[in-house]
Amino acid sequence: MRDLIDIMELSAEEIDGLIKTALDIIANPGKYAESCKRKKLATLFFEPSTRTRLSFEAAMLELGGSVIGFSDAACSSASKGESVADTARVIECYADIIAMRHPKEGAPLVAARNVDIPVINAGDGGHNHPTQTLADLLTIYREKGRVDNLTIGLCGDLKFGRTVHSLISAMSRYTGVKFVLISPEELRVPRYIVTDVLEARGIEYEETSDLDAALPKLDVLYMTRVQKERFFNEQDYLRLKDSYILTAEKMKTAPEKMIVMHPLPRVNEISVAVDEDPRACYFKQVRNGKYMRMALILKLLEVKI
């Protein structure tokens, strides 16, 4: 039984397979309605989340399975000092698959190493968020018709933005992909992403702090929120939080076929006026996330349709 802790554990072929399954789910939802009957998903959310948790729950329910879990560490035995390993071992007695979000980086790996059922990383601190990447990839595929030969601008908090790290790693396996990394100096993408992923694979990239200059050359603009919860120092957060705001005015300089993505929640980095722009895809991303999580659950539970 496999887990999904890091998006790189999935080969490009496996990701293509998940996209294919998700597209089939979209086209034929009835075919999958009872595919996980009598299977239970445990959503272990040690950190607040609305979208991801509900997306996992909706995904499992639409597959005919059921859901148990908690959405706040205070409601779990972690508040009594229980280790991640022990929590996972206990949950394994009740559930067939685990989706875990945890503020500590690597916590889902600890869980996966201690249980025999599949564990899905639903976000670990500022580290990885592979199922968001699956949602992103399906969105790019559906909107652009391909996931290769694209110039992707990533904007905002590229340091702590785990969705950004996973997306760069995943996209860097496709040919002809270029990255424009747009952030303040303090929130640049971690060096290991640059050295181990971009430079190691010879991927074309540029680092800039100028969103306006970058916009006209992008096929995809991926905006991110500066996350208050990742800062130890509130002063730094306040100074950086409004570094980039995408407005309807700015969108006038963007290519006609560029799409705007955001893992959500947004605070004010995308003006509400942009929502009406047909290039805004962030709510489509949410829906796509559910389909990809459905495809992933089917794969990890080895359900044959």
Partner: peptide, 21 residues
Amino acid sequence: RNPRCVSSCEQELVQEFRLTD
């Protein structure tokens, strides 16, 4: 040394590093 790492707090978790370069 990452204070956000699970190894900073998980009980009896053995520190583990892999050679990447």
